[in-house]
Simulated assay, not measured.
Amino acid sequence: MSTAHVRALLDHVAAELPRELWPHWTEGWPHEIEAGLLDAAFSARATYGTPTTGVRAVITRWRDHRAAPLDDLTALAAHADEPEGLLAVLNNRQRVPGNYTTKAEAVASAARSLAELGCTTSADLRDDEAQRNAIVGVPGFGAATWECLAMQLGIRTAESHRLVCEFLGEALDLEAPPSTADAEHLVASAAVRLEITPATFTHAVWRHQRAQRRVASAR
């Protein structure tokens, strides 16, 4: 891929997800599995908000309550049987898609399911069937919840890679998405130009494509 391709990609990024307006120019929640799980749950069918509203406000409340690094799912799992305490801390009673439970209850259940598999920290998370099923099996959660959790922790799944490649293909008006090697080159080059990490670029683009998918499916 040439310098012209990188310039075209940057122009597309500026038009579609300008850094001053798009709230997802971050790496997600690396090394913070609790924050990643809360994000995956509370960002579903909800406005992401600012650092003091929406999803990030929920995470901030939990961070203030924990007063510790958010990388131990046993803290959330402890609320699985009696979620009222977690609901009070998070101060958010949004319900999961399907209206099965509150998002807080679903988070606690998912945390316990992962912990029972031996996955309690970000270092334990991997894209395998057992861990994926632990998330997808929670009523109101699904494949999108798992994909979001994995992305927040820096785990690239086949689906997240496909979404990023779709964005790159659209940006460059390619007949087919770029190869893995070309995609990595484009992401790395764009990140250098924007003075951010490739992980930040990938996360922002992935969030954008995910949002576009939701808009398209709602039509």
Rank of each mutant, 00 (worst) to 15 (best):
L87D: 11
I33L: 15
L10E: 11
L186T: 05
V6I: 15
D128S: 02
R95Y: 00
A150R: 13
E116V: 00
L70H: 03
P177E: 09
R210C: 04
F201C: 15
C165H: 14
T121F: 02
G49W: 04
R210M: 07
G36R: 14
G98V: 00
A44C: 10
L17N: 05
R112C: 06
A188H: 09
Q94W: 11
A171D: 06
S122H: 03
Q209A: 07
V107L: 06
A8G: 14
S217W: 08
P198C: 06
R213W: 12
R56L: 15
Y100K: 01
E195V: 03
T157W: 14
A183L: 02
L76R: 03
S2K: 12
A188G: 04
L172Y: 06
M151N: 08
L153D: 11
A80F: 08
E159L: 01
A204F: 09
G137Q: 03
R126A: 09
D124H: 10
R207Y: 04
N133H: 07
D71C: 03
F201V: 13
E105Q: 06
M151Q: 14
L76Y: 06
R214C: 04
E166Y: 09
W29C: 10
D72M: 07
H185C: 03
A104F: 03
G118S: 02
P23H: 09
V164A: 11
P30H: 13
L90F: 02
H79V: 07
T52W: 11
A44T: 11
A40L: 12
I135V: 15
A111E: 02
C148I: 02
V6K: 09
E195Q: 14
P51L: 06
G54Q: 10
D72R: 14
T52Y: 11
A44N: 05
A108T: 02
A78P: 04
Q131M: 09
L90I: 02
S189K: 09
G98W: 00
S160N: 14
W206I: 01
R66V: 13
W206H: 06
R95S: 01
V136G: 02
A110R: 02
W206E: 01
R19E: 13
L153G: 08
D128I: 01
L149N: 07
V107T: 00
R95T: 01
V187F: 04
M151C: 04
P51Y: 05
L194M: 15
H12F: 14
A110N: 01
Q209R: 15
P178G: 03
T101P: 00
E170L: 07
T101A: 09
A110P: 04
R213Y: 12
W25M: 13
A123W: 03
N91I: 00
R210N: 11
H203V: 01
R193Y: 05
